[in-house]
C-alpha cells in the first residue's frame, strides 16, 4: 500500500530520493506499523520525537501497534520548539 512519509527539520536528510517539500509517497507492506516504517527508513529512534499520523500524535509506546492505512500521512520531527 502507499503512504506519504514526511520528514522535517534535521530528519530531512533521511528522506528517500525524489522527495519534494519534505515529503514523498512510498510503498509499505499492508499492515505496516509506524515503527516498521521508522525502521525501514533507518531513522534514529532518539530523533523520532514528534510522530503524527494524519496530524494525530502517536506516543512512543503506541508505535509498534499503530498500523497504517492506505493513503495516510506519517510525519516525523526530532525534538523541536519555537514560539
Amino acid at each position: 500500500m502507499k503512504i506519504t512519509i514526511k520528514l522535517f527539520a534535521l530528519l530531512g536528510k533521511y528522506l528517500p530520493e525524489g522527495a519534494v517539500k519534505n515529503q514523498i509517497d512510498i510503498e509499505v507492506s499492508d499492515g505496516a506499523s509506524v515503527q516498521d516504517v521508522i525502521h525501514s527508513l533507518s531513522l534514529p529512534a532518539e530523533h523520532c520525537h514528534l510522530v503524527l499520523v494524519d496530524g494525530v500524535y502517536v506516543a512512543p509506546s503506541e508505535r509498534d501497534n499503530k498500523t497504517l492505512s492506505e493513503g495516510q500521512a506519517l510525519a516525523i520531527w526530532p525534538p523541536v520548539a519555537g514560539g
Binding site: F8, A9, L10, W77, P79, V80, A81, G82, G83
Partner: peptide, 11 residues
Amino acid sequence: EGLPAMGTQVL
C-alpha cells in the same frame, strides 16, 4: 540543536 539550526520557524 533544533533551535539554532531551524529557529522557531520549524513550527
